[in-house]
Design a binder for these strands. Structure first.
Lengths: 175, 175
DNA sequence: GGTAAATAGTTCGCTGGTGAACTATCAGGT
DNA sequence: ACCTGATAGTTCACCAGCGAACTATTTACC
């Protein structure tokens, strides 16, 4: 399948050679970015492979999970856009897919008739409850190389990075 | 732009609520997967925004960089597919794009006439040399929240994870 | 109360990426 | 030499996601 080892090796060699020609290159940061994307990409592909037999892709599933895990099982498209990192355009398509399969229902909000209310159906909940457990072993296995301490450290650093990048992008956009 | 903070918060809350209903849920692993994808996604989007003015996307650029950073400035499409994590179909398109802009050249390998040899042109090298340096500050800033030790730790863990996942996926495919 | 600006969602046309089918070349056994 | 199967790359038809333009509703301001 998608073998990461050659990529990782080539990454280190390649960055070294580029740095020979362009010495200002921030080597360790570039390595981090690419490692991050490599890893995330591999995990995503594996996950989507497991989802495909059920006719969903990651964004569809993520959206459904947002509803499943929300306080009252409902949300508006715009809320879901923020949480599932999607653009409104695509959220319309996702809602269409999920609604067609009766995993969610569509209705109008009463207090603001522009808004649409998406709600997970009982069938949607059953679907999630059937779908999730078989995936647990694979997810656990992905991080089996980490000790409990390492997992904790990794999570702490990742979270710190995520929130830092968030701030960076925001301030980039404003001035 | 794409604010991560609400996503991160919703992630922790959501995983908690799901675990209430499905107790076997491997909470910390799920959090890690999503954090990883969230972060990688945000970095990718930011990077592509900086690339867009030059008319390239991430895969195009990554492919060009593979040639730039290779031993002799050349490679076959299949080699690039492995290194840039692309399917042959898409590599054809990428090669078309880069060749049309004279950043790379196409020729046939002599010893095996099935193979195509892609080679970065002098113009391609100049393009990379012009393009890269202005991006360095942003890349450095992305990881500015890390101390030197943290960066080192993070890289070590990421690399370990990448190689572990690699092995996992491989052995998954075989039996 | 009525017009202007903002907001929620959808539709449309386009780009990027994929699997399946195809062509051309090479390698191996007979 | 010749057929079989593998390999490198391309073409084609399709899906997912995006920006721009549009509709419907709400809010703000005079």
């Amino acid at each position: 399948m998608s073998s990461l080892k050659p990529c990782v090796e080539a990454l280190y060699e390649g960055v070294g050679r580029v740095a020979d020609r362009i010495p200002e290159l921030p080597k360790s940061e570039v390595v981090l970015v690419r490692l991050l994307m490599l890893t995330a990409g591999a995990l995503l592909r594996e996950f989507e492979d497991r989802l495909k037999p059920h006719g969903l892709n990651d964004s569809d599933f993520r959206t459904l999970m947002m509803l499943y895990s929300s306080e009252d099982g409902s949300a508006t498209p715009s809320e879901l856009c923020v949480l599932a990192e999607q653009k409104p355009t695509n959220m319309t398509r996702i809602a269409n897919v999920l609604a067609k399969r009766d995993l969610i229902s569509r209705s109008h909000a009463t207090h603001d008739r522009r808004q649409v209310l998406l709600r997970i159906t009982p069938a949607g909940r059953r679907f999630v409850a059937k779908l999730l457990p078989p995936m647990f072993p694979a997810v656990a296995e992905s991080f089996a190389c980490f000790s409990a301490t390492e997992r904790k450290t990794f999570e702490k650093l990742l979270k710190k990075l995520a929130l830092h990048i968030d701030r960076t992008v925001d301030t980039d956009a404003c001035p």
